[in-house]
Design a protein around this nucleic acid. Structure first.
Lengths: 112, 112
DNA sequence: CACCTCTATCGTCTATAGACGATAGACGAT
DNA sequence: ATCGTCTATCGTCTATAGACGATAGAGGTG
């Protein structure tokens, strides 16, 4: 029970990371990036059926949440997954889920 | 490579579960439930600094996302965590995160 | 230098989220 | 039967999310 690296994420922080995942387009982008390590912006723009400005906004949200990083390359940008916040979310949700005692809501009911 | 129980979650589905986690009050509720297996509604209402109607709405969202279940008991309700959707989220995010190649955005940049 | 490609930002619009109070409805207890 | 407690729903309001087109600006390329 030592090992408290990257302190226990707060409700706010967890909600913030979750909010970044709370949009199908952003999930799609993350999975795109996961499929190829890194990805040029123009490829991302080409893969989604959304306006370039919309996708750029999604990228901004993901970056702000720390889920991706970006750097300029040639005439464009390259986007890249980052583990940090996703790991925190995994750990926090994992801790919640591990507490589930298989109570599926019909134990010791009202049959008094 | 068999074992495809609860098929690979879609972008939409993952986003939906994430959206349920995308609010601090709901995270708080989940953690409350995790801390005590199950929880009477009145306790939940008492723990959060929000109107009862607001909390009831949050419980509805969590239930609709499949993250909790509920059943009547005595004169009230009991809420209870459910693993299913949270597990799917863990698996999906885990798969994304596992692909991260430690590219932290400054590799092979523009120093051509 | 002029051009062209790529990305970010701005302004706008619509839809959804999240909060509240008021109230309805279920159910046990008296 | 009446009452009191507990929860869900309704209506409303405000704030935020998410989409778009237009446009600005950075930075290679010819």
């Amino acid at each position: 029970m030592a090992r408290r690296v990257s302190s226990p994420i707060t409700d706010e922080q967890l909600a913030t990371v979750a909010r970044a995942l709370a949009n199908p387009a952003r999930v799609r982008i993350l999975r795109l990036l996961a499929a190829q390590d890194q990805c040029r912006g123009s490829e991302v723009f080409a893969q989604l059926p959304l306006a370039q400005s919309t996708i750029s906004e999604h990228l901004r949200v993901l970056k702000q949440a720390g889920l991706i990083s970006s750097h300029p390359v040639g005439t464009g940008m390259v986007y890249c997954l980052q583990r940090g916040p996703a790991d925190q979310l995994l750990r926090a949700v994992g801790e919640i889920v591990d507490k589930v005692p298989e109570c599926d809501t019909r134990a010791e009911g009202r049959h008094h």
